[in-house]
Every structure is written in structure tokens, then in C-alpha cells.
Design a protein around this nucleic acid. Structure first.
Lengths: 192, 192
DNA sequence: TAATAATGAATGAACGTTCATTCTTGATAT
DNA sequence: ATATCAAGAATGAACGTTCATTCATTATTA
């Protein structure tokens, strides 16, 4: 095993530890020492991989966000019909939030608090462009409501985060049946 | 002016300061000393009104949540039709999130992070019952989709918080036109 | 053995909370 | 009216702890 991959393993361990600890305690209640311990390295080692705590959490955010958007567009092609394309992307997103719960919950926390600075946010938003393009096409075809992409996102994608949070708190169970119903609601809210 | 109202003024100042500072910096990055300074009292005085920092933020949460639900049901009567009742409640909620932005943003942050403990959450959820009852009635009348109240909330109410957050970040402007469109999307998502 | 990676004790700043002290209030006495 | 004073309210310096970060030392690597 070469150095690059050893480094990568430690980096990954630090990122995973950060996600888990920030999910359970919040950013400021997560000491660097605990991140180090959970990742199996010493406190000082973190500073070989990241500039400081803020840089660590920024990089975690960007990396997790990239994994999310990558997942979201699996099997999606630009040429698809608006309805079919949206269904694929929506289901991918729902699946991600179910299967990769820790990562999804971390993103939800970052997106609703002042943990991440503006530059990190911009960076994370970039990769959603294909969905915005699809919606634009849908508007031109008269299939999608002629409203701001923020509204489309708010009503069709954002609600999945709420369902995920409720499932996390044990309030209810997200079954495939629920997912199917939720997709119908998402589509009903944005279709013309 | 008697002592009781003087106390109330200071308490209010402390609660307002907490909301504003937690909104801008997050709970753990808000020192008690800054809350005290912003409220115009000394650090020690906080402990005459609240047990400790956690108790302070819990009480702020419960109080703000109560103000929110109180606002939400203005002008609503149990006997109303489902569609009319929902419209009134939805518009109230939207108006609250626009006009009382600081308070609404504070709630959004508490509801998406581990700041508030479970008991505080339960307390905050209590007061939404009339909306749940209205939805139940709507299901029986075949007007509302026969899905979990969590789904109904996720798709019709929760999205407003996203729009509010985006407006806060200057990403876009929530005009009355946007509100009207958003209401249509909310209704389309839950109606049968 | 030279270069690189990793360690963890040490540092200093910042924080929540306490408490000895000071200030304010308003009832009573003059 | 004015002075006195007891009691509660408020203060803010001080305390003990925790934390992010550093760096002299040690271990690993090639």
C-alpha cells in the first residue's frame, strides 16, 4: 500500500468521524480531540490534512455534497423527457437520503445553520444545474409550473429532508409505499 | 412601573438577544457574555432569570414556538371547510415567516439541529393539533390525500421554511406573487 | 540514514458559571 | 418632605474547565 492511499484512508476516517460527531452533537460541541480519537489518529495529525476546524468542516461539506449530487443524477440523461427525468432524479435523492442517512443528515444540518460559510455554500450548489436545466425545459414545454426554481426545489425536493428527519427521530417509518406517495405529492406540486 | 414588568422587560430583552445571536452565530458560538451585553445586563444577571444556557435556549424555543402556533390559527374556526381552513392557516404561517423572520429562522434552526432536547421538542409540537384535525376531516371527506400527516406537513408547510431561508440569504425575493404561487403548490401537493 | 509522518503534552484564549460586593427600591420614621 | 434602612436585584471580576492549535520529540519509511 502506498502513501497516497494511506493518506486517503486517514482523511476518509477523519471525514466520517466529523459527520457522525457533528450529527450527534453539532459542530461547536464537537472537539477536535474527539474527532481525532474516533478516526484513530492524534489531535495534531488533523492539522496535517486540514488547515483548521472550519476548513475541516467546509471540506466535509463539499465532499458530502458532491457525493449527494453524484448520486442524484445516476442513470439520468439530458435527452430524457421532463417527467421521466424528474422521476429518476427524485427517486435517486430519496434513496440517498434513506440509504446514506448520516451524510444526508449532515447536509441538512449544514444547510439550516451558520456552520458553513458562504463560499462553501456556493460550491455545494453548483452541481444541481442539470435539475435546474430540466425544470427550465419543462417550463418551456408547459409541463412544469412557471415559478422560480427555488419554489420548485422547496416543494418537490426539500420535503424529503423533513421526512428523513422525522424517521431519524423515530416519529415514523419511511416505507417504499410512503416514498411512492411522496413522489406523487412532489410531482403534483410542480406539474402544471 | 412595578417590578414584575421590569423583570418582564429584561427577560424579553434576553430572549430577543438570544434569538438574534443564535441566528447569526449558532448556539455554541454565542457566549452568554454577548447575550448579556446585547440585552443590556451583566453576565451574572442571566442566571437570575434562567438556570443555565441550555435552560435559556429551551425557554426561548418554547416561547417562540408558542408565538408561532398562536399566529398560525388566527381567524381560524373549527367549523370551516377544509379548503378554506387550510388556506387561512397556510397564509398565516407564511405571513409569520415573512414578518417575524427572526423568530421563524430561530425555529428552523432548532428544528434541524440537536440544540433542543427531546422534551422541548414535544412541548413545541403540541399546539399544531387543530391543523392535524383539519387534515383528518379532509381525508374523510375525500378532499385530502390519504397519507401520513408527516407527509402532508412536509409538502405543504415545511417548504415555506426553505423559501424563507433563501430570502434570508438574499438568493431571491419573496413577493406576494411568490406567496400566492407557493400556496397553489402546497394545495396541489396535498389535495386529492 | 535522511526525510517524512505522526504524536501528545503544552499553551493560551475563551467560555459558563459563581459569588462577594454594590446599587436600587420603597416602606417607615422623623 | 426628608432621612434611614432592610432586602432584593444587579454587577463584573475571578475561577475552573475546555478547547483549538502548536511544536519539540519520536516513529516510520524508503
Amino acid at each position: 500500500m502506498n502513501n497516497a492511499s494511506k493518506s486517503e484512508i486517514k482523511r476518509k476516517a477523519l471525514i466520517d468521524a466529523t459527520v457522525e460527531l457533528v450529527n450527534n452533537n453539532g459542530f461547536h460541541a464537537t472537539p477536535m480531540s474527539r474527532i481525532a480519537k474516533m478516526a484513530g489518529v492524534s489531535a495534531g495529525t488533523i492539522y496535517l490534512y486540514f488547515e483548521n476546524k472550519q476548513d475541516l468542516v467546509n471540506q466535509v461539506y463539499i465532499e458530502v455534497k458532491a457525493a449527494f449530487t453524484n448520486y442524484a443524477f445516476r442513470g439520468y440523461k439530458e435527452g430524457m423527457s421532463v417527467e421521466k427525468g424528474f422521476k429518476i432524479i427524485w427517486k435517486n435523492i430519496a434513496e440517498f437520503k434513506l440509504k446514506e442517512f448520516e451524510e444526508a443528515y449532515f447536509l441538512s444540518q449544514c444547510d439550516n445553520t451558520p456552520i458553513i460559510d458562504e463560499s462553501g455554500r456556493q460550491e455545494g450548489l453548483k452541481h444541481l444545474q442539470p435539475l435546474l436545466d430540466l425544470w427550465e425545459k419543462g417550463k418551456q414545454e408547459g409541463i412544469i409550473k412557471n415559478v422560480s426554481p427555488f419554489s420548485l426545489y422547496a416543494f418537490s425536493i426539500y420535503p424529503v429532508a423533513f421526512l428523513m428527519n422525522m424517521q431519524q427521530r423515530g416519529a415514523f417509518q419511511l416505507t417504499p409505499q410512503h416514498i411512492e406517495e411522496a413522489y406523487e405529492m412532489a410531482w403534483d406540486s410542480i406539474k402544471k
